[in-house]
C-alpha cells in the first residue's frame, strides 16, 4: 500500500512541487526529493535536533513531521541562510570564528535553532543560549564554543562587536 499525494511547499523562498508517499517525513522530503542534504538526520525520533528546520518561521524537528503536512507552508533550511555564492551570514561566520563546530553534523540544526531564537530574543544571556540549544545534541565541541559564537552574534547585532 503506497498512498501518495501532490504537495506544494515553499523551500527557502522557492515554491516546489512533489508527489510524495503520505508516510514520507519532512526531513526525507528535503533530503531525498529536494536534494537539500544540509538538513541532517541523527536519531530520527526527535531527540538529537540535527534535523531542525524552520516551519512557517518557527523551529521544528523535520523528522517528526510528515511531508504532506508541509503542503502550502514555508520551510527554511540551512541552505537558505546564505546563497551558495554569497558570504556566510553573521551566525555562520561566528561559528567559523569561534570554532563552534568540529565534525559539523549537528551544526545545521543548531544554526536553525539559533536563527529563530536570536531573531525572537535579540538580548539574551549565556544561560538563555544554553537552554535554547538544549534540544540539540553535539558530541564534539562541549557546547562552549557554540555559546560563544551565539554571544558574538548577540553583541554584534546590538552594535558592540566583540
Amino acid at each position: 500500500m503506497t498512498v501518495t499525494r501532490k504537495i506544494a511547499v515553499t523551500v527557502n523562498g522557492l515554491r516546489r512541487e512533489a508527489e510524495v508517499p503520505v508516510r514520507l517525513t519532512l526531513a526525507d522530503l528535503l533530503r531525498k526529493k529536494f536534494e537539500l542534504t544540509g538538513t541532517h538526520l541523527g536519531c530520527e525520533h526527535g531527540v538529537c535536533g540535527a534535523c531542525t528546520v524552520l516551519f512557517d518561521g518557527v523551529s521544528v524537528r523535520a523528522c517528526l513531521m510528515l511531508a504532506v503536512q508541509a503542503d502550502n507552508h514555508a520551510i527554511e533550511t540551512v541552505e537558505g541562510l546564505a546563497a551558495a555564492d554569497a558570504p556566510l551570514n553573521d551566525l555562520q561566520q561566528a561559528f567559523s570564528d569561534k570554532h563552534a563546530l568540529q565534525c559539523g553534523f549537528c551544526t545545521p540544526g543548531i544554526l536553525m535553532t539559533l536563527t529563530e531564537f536570536l531573531r525572537d530574543n535579540p538580548v539574551v544571556s549565556e544561560e538563555d543560549i544554553k537552554i535554547a540549544i538544549s534540544g540539540n545534541i553535539c558530541r564534539c565541541t562541549g557546547y562552549q564554543p557554540i555559546v560563544e559564537a551565539a554571544m558574538q552574534v548577540v553583541k554584534a547585532r546590538q552594535g558592540n562587536p566583540s
Binding site: T2, V22, R23, T25, D28, E44, V68
Partner: peptide
Amino acid sequence: MKPPAFHYFDP
C-alpha cells in the same frame, strides 16, 4: 521510509 504504511486523512 521510517513510518509504516497507513492511510492519511486531514479533516
